[in-house]
Nucleic acid binder design. Structure first.
Length: 559
RNA sequence: GCCCCUGUAGCUCAGCGGAUAGAGCGUCGGCCUCCGGAGCCGAAAGCGCAGGUUCGAGUCCUGCCAGGGGCACCA
């Protein structure tokens, strides 16, 4: 998966993983030849992992177990033969190979491979390290939030928005051409309802049944001086609300490339064109005065209305025109829509429509964010949107800050209907998961300040012996940093920003352990060791900056 | 009834099909003449139930139980 990296230093021109994979595949080939086994293994398919338990070595492969059956032999015998071949000569950095358990082949390495990894982090730096090219320039659009501009966005939208934005960052770092988009529902019945609500307030009347009750409507009414036309008033209010949404999102670091107007699609005639396109394929019929889409033929549970009896296009019709635009006009290779789970019902018809338009429905991924609930100590924070008691994202950001909001929302997976306790993240709280990570960042900044104070300057990397880093705590930091490129790749492939969150917390943990046990600038530390440790600190800074950057969380130099 | 998601430690959540399942909070017990103790170290405590696939299942499949969310000519 990972391509050879030309900038990895020293004799080797590829990662330790690639070198081990190749050695293993070669050894299997030798054994197969010797024993007349029908067994060819491609190095890229060799499964290598870092065992959880250190006594199982630094790297391990299950190659014998997965191929034994194919070769009609038993795993331990095959593994044993492979080990014999692998042992002369031992691959780079390998100091021991053991056969273990049901047929694992475990490799013990000297610390040199970790020093190599450290040099790679430092050479490539914040911009270049952990940039796995798994996208190969694939053009992907991430559409997320897209909340109706009929009121301030609520915490759930913020949570799923963090996901969408972090996913976009991860995809961009892993070789995809990414565009972030917000679909603005600025037309239809709800905008008229918004207009009706606004106009009622301007006249000092109560909001009619089913209207928008929030205080923001009253506030807007106070400054509205436009025509008493429902649609005009609704659009005007939606524009104002959208501005507020934009500001709220910007406050947590979410910025869109495109705000796509639903009204613009309808006015462009694209909806009619799309319906005509479906009609030409025999997928449209009239019934009860409405225009229907034969979506049931394409996997939906039933047919759907595209144009209502009153002549208005349905949301689905607009959405199909919109997705036609994404795929067939703008040419995205892949579209990822992030919706709340309450929009689950739309997925089948949307997929059916995309397929009907001649687009492979697998190119459309719909990620559903499960419902989020907040708790404040013992108090349950109400989240009901209907009741008008939903908590605004603004409120939470004002309470716990943008960094806490983002990292908190990226700690659990999108599929998890998670509950979060605001009390544990609040500034006053002594123990919370957010500052733990930022504390590592601040300590790194502190080392720099202290070094400057004492007139200690970091020597050029080429003059520093990284081999002096042998303390277990130091090596744990290096192991963690070495994993980052794969973490980024896995997070991109699995669409799982939470993997980055988990990694960042692990790095912070390793760093705190190192910092606690390994003095960097103390008087009794060998200056050569100080130099090596300063570079380890710098590599940690790079790792944290990359990881937190992908999450949209700041890496403060001081707190 | 049908569809989607989820059941992992007292609580909130992590866990590429790998060998003895992790973290934070909470509980109990250690570490501050030392670069930021918002830290470090240790202890007790867990995969809803039943089958299946696999050399190997918390992870994949099926059924059951429990919780959440959907099943509009609303968006």
């Amino acid at each position: 998966m990972s391509a050879p990296d030309p900038s990895t230093p020293r004799s080797s021109s590829s990662s330790i993983r690639d070198r081990l994979s190749k050695a293993i595949a070669d050894a299997v080939a030798v054994v197969a030849g010797d024993q007349g086994l029908d067994l060819v293994v491609d190095p890229s398919t060799v499964h290598l992992e870092r065992p959880a338990r250190r006594e199982h070595g630094d790297w391990s492969t299950n190659i014998a177990m997965v191929t034994a059956k194919r070769a009609a032999t038993n795993p331990r015998a095959l593994a044993s033969a492979v080990v014999d071949v692998l042992e002369h000569p031992l691959p780079d950095h390998v100091v021991g190979i053991e056969l273990a358990g049901p047929g694992f082949i475990n490799f013990r390495l000297d610390a040199g491979w970790l020093h190599e990894a450290l040099a790679a982090v430092l050479t490539l730096g914040e911009d270049g390290y952990a940039r796995p090219d798994i996208g190969h320039g694939e053009k992907v659009q991430v559409e997320f939030i897209s909340a109706n501009p009929t009121g301030p966005i609520h915490v759930g939208n913020g949570w799923w928005g963090s996901y969408g934005d972090a996913l976009a960052r991860i995809l961009a770092r892993s070789g995809h051409k990414v565009s972030r988009e917000y679909y603005v529902n600025d037309t239809g019945g709800q905008i008229r309802t918004l207009g009706t609500s606004l106009l009622a307030r301007t006249r000092g009347e109560d909001i009619p049944e089913g209207g928008y009750q929030g205080q923001y409507v009253t506030d807007l009414a106070a400054i509205y001086d436009g025509p008493h036309d429902v649609t005009a008033a609704g659009r005007w209010a939606a524009d104002r609300i959208l501005e507020r949404i934009r500001a709220t999102l910007a406050s947590v670091g979410i910025v869109f490339d495109e705000w796509y107007s639903q009204a613009s699609i309808e006015e462009s005639g694209a909806v009619d064109e799309t319906i005509a396109l479906l009609d030409a394929k025999g997928l449209v019929y009239e019934q009860d005065g409405a225009t229907w889409f034969r979506s049931e033929q394409l996997g939906d549970v039933r047919d759907r209305v595209l144009r209502k009896a009153d002549g208005d296009a349905t949301y689905l019709a607009g959405d199909l025109a919109y997705h036609r635009d994404k795929f067939l006009i703008r040419g995205f290779d892949r579209v990822i829509d992030v919706f709340g789970a309450d929009h689950h019902g739309q997925v089948a018809s949307l997929k059916a429509g995309v397929e009907a338009l001649g687009v492979d429905p697998d190119r459309l991924e719909v990620k559903l964010g499960q419902m989020v609930s907040l708790v404040d100590g013992d108090e349950t924070v109400k989240m009901g949107k209907r009741a008008g008691t939903a908590i605004d994202l603004d409120t939470v950001v004002a309470d716990i800050g943008p960094d806490a909001t983002r990292i908190l929302s990226l700690m659990s997976s999108l599929d998890q209907a998670a509950t979060f306790d605001l009390a544990t993240v609040r500034e006053q709280s002594a123990d919370n998961p957010v500052f733990y990570v930022q504390m590592a960042s601040a300590r790194i900044g502190g080392v720099g300040r202290k070094a400057a104070e004492r007139g200690i300057v970091r020597a050029p990397l080429t003059d520093v012996d990284l081999g002096l880093l042998t303390h277990p705590r130091e090596l744990e930091v290096l192991r963690c940093l070495e994993e980052l490129p794969e973490v980024v790749a896995d997070a991109a492939i699995d669409r799982a920003p939470t993997k980055v969150t988990t990694w960042v917390r692990k790095l912070a943990s390793c760093f705190h352990g190192f910092y606690h046990d390994c003095p960097i600038l103390a008087d009794d530390v060998d200056p050569a060791v100080t130099q090596a440790r300063l570079w380890l600190v710098e590599a940690s800074r790079i790792g944290l900056a990359i990881g937190l950057g992908l999450l949209g969380v700041s890496a403060p130099e001081a707190m």
